[in-house]
């Protein structure tokens, strides 16, 4: 079972990679020609998102280098601790909407510091799965179609993230500490 879960994504990956061309061939599509026509768009999209990515990644990189995420945690920690949100998880909750690799680094640190079999590590790992890199997604998705006015995409995405972070703590507590 464990093995299957470890490779879950790989199996589906290969199912897509081999299955789609096979199904296309059966349905009489000229698979190679079709593939090349579609693939042409890849370059254009990747280039189009560069300005949006630079804008977001530079701002976040500066903020992280200055130590802003740590300060946010120190400021909000006492308040959130009172309502039962562990302070140790705050840096992860703040980093997550901005940077996936940054959040992965923090998750690895938490697991290293508290051990893989602890409440904090379980809650952090759950949080990693229940939240997303909202700002990255918004920059890339809207960037690809040159949209600058994003209306309520940011508030809706952030509300979803906050819910994911809080629910990760609540559900983990309920599952692992009753």
């Amino acid at each position: 079972m464990h093995n299957f879960i470890d490779n879950f994504s790989d199996y589906f990956f290969l199912l897509f990679v081999a299955g789609i061309p096979l199904a296309g061939y059966i349905r009489k599509v000229k698979v190679y020609e079709s593939f090349v026509v579609g693939a042409k768009g890849g370059f254009e999209i990747a280039i189009k998102i560069i300005p949006y990515l630079v804008a977001i990644i530079v701002a976040v990189g500066m903020f992280r280098a200055a130590g802003g995420f740590d300060i946010l945690g120190e400021l909000l920690g006492p308040v959130l601790n009172k309502i039962g949100f562990p302070t140790e998880l705050l840096p992860l909750a703040f980093m997550r909407p901005f940077s996936g690799s940054g959040a992965n680094g923090i998750l690895a640190e938490i697991i290293q510091a508290h051990g893989g079999n602890s409440f904090l590590s379980h809650a952090a790992a759950t949080m990693m799965g229940s939240t997303e890199t909202t700002f990255y997604v918004i920059a890339v998705y809207f960037g690809a179609v040159s949209i600058r006015r994003t209306r309520y995409a940011v508030p809706a995405g952030l509300l979803a993230d906050i819910t994911g972070a809080i629910m990760a703590v609540v559900v983990t507590r309920w599952f692992f500490q009753s």
């Binding site: 897509f16 990679v17 789609i20 061309p21 199904a23 296309g24 059966i26 349905r27 599509v29 698979v31 079709s34 593939f35 090349v36 026509v37 579609g38 693939a39 042409k40 768009g41 890849g42 370059f43 999209i45 990747a46 280039i47 998102i49 560069i50 990515l53």
Partner: peptide, 23 residues
Amino acid sequence: AIGLIGIMAFWLGLMQIAEDAGL
């Protein structure tokens, strides 16, 4: 962004097949 080009082209190519096949 540059690193995305290859994988982006690959999946868009597969998607074109899926589309042409009516999938």
